[in-house]
């Protein structure tokens, strides 16, 4: 496996990770990243952030040293890109987590905004009405300068933290954001997802209903679904898991690009992730 050909990450058939056509005016899109127990999406989130800030997922497939080199070069002549506003909101990690990950590439924290919804979120909002909080959050997330790229890490926790339904979360939060922000990435932990289908007489618990409705809603909303999961066969020395890129429920027929469906194997070790084919 040491001699395997490394593969570049691409999500769209114009060989891009985040195609420029997605950022055309009046366009709003969503991507959905699902992950399961054993394969945390940290590397993919970083890769997407790097792509938006620096133009390419530099840490993928590269040793850290060479990634830093490229990053420095790109940062030096990235004046034109400074119009971009990148933001990430996380309910499981604090800002330190992202600063340390992106700091390795010497990306200045001023080039992106982290909304830390882990720290003191409960103390701040516990027991208050969900609707108002959602409104607040939308305002915070879309405040000037408006981000054109926003990653939401585990917004499904809001279901429980605010004790709201999946429909409320979709309508009053995610839809409100997609209306304003050109590209949103929803990162969600789907380990618990278990949908027996409508045919079964099995009674589905209320929590599961919300989880299914939330996840399904995200799939329908998204132009592409990026699924990360471990190998079915379990742990392997040279493979961490698979990344499957598939079309989502939303169509891309209005744009000249298509989702490049693909299945990568990846290996995450220390701070680098390598992509390759089976």
């Amino acid at each position: 496996m040491t001699s395997v050909q490394k593969q570049d990450l691409r999500l769209f058939d114009d060989h891009s990770v985040l195609s420029q056509s997605l950022f055309r005016p009046e366009n709003h899109h969503a991507l959905f990243v699902t992950h399961k127990l054993g394969t945390s999406p940290a590397w993919l989130i970083n890769a997407l952030l790097e792509t938006h800030i620096l133009g390419a997922p530099l840490t993928l497939n590269e040793s850290q040293a060479s990634a830093i080199n490229t990053a420095n070069r790109r940062l030096a002549n990235a004046v034109t890109r400074s119009t971009k506003n990148t933001a990430i909101a996380s309910w499981v990690h604090n800002s330190e987590f992202f600063h340390s990950a992106l700091g390795k590439l010497k990306i200045d924290p001023s080039r992106y905004k982290v909304h830390d919804y882990l720290s003191d979120f409960v103390l701040k909002y516990h027991g208050k009405t969900g609707q108002k909080i959602l409104k607040n959050l939308v305002q915070e997330l879309t405040a000037e300068p408006k981000p054109d790229f926003l990653i939401l890490e585990q917004p499904e926790l809001l279901l429980h933290l605010l004790n709201i339904s999946s429909d409320e979360l979709h309508l009053d939060f995610i839809n409100q954001l997609t209306k304003i922000i050109p590209l949103i990435v929803i990162v969600s932990y789907t380990e618990a997802y278990d949908n027996p289908g409508t045919d079964t007489s099995e009674r589905i618990s209320a929590n599961m209903i919300e989880q299914i409705r939330f996840s399904n809603g995200c799939v329908f909303k998204s132009i592409a679904v990026l699924g990360i999961r471990p190998l079915k066969t379990g742990r392997a020395k040279d493979v961490t898991g698979t990344l499957t890129i598939t079309r989502g429920g939303a169509s891309l027929s209005h744009l000249p690009i298509e989702v490049a469906e693909n299945e990568y194997l990846f290996q995450t070790q220390k701070d680098t992730t390598k992509l390759f084919y089976r």
């Binding site: 127990l37 054993g38 394969t39 945390s40 999406p41 940290a42 590397w43 993919l44 471990p230 379990g234 742990r235 961490t240 898991g241 995450t268 070790q269 701070d271 992730t273």
Partner: peptide
């Protein structure tokens, strides 16, 4: 280790 994406599920 798991948080940065390594797979450590060992059953």
């Amino acid at each position: 280790l798991s948080d940065r994406g390594e797979m450590h599920v060992m059953r």
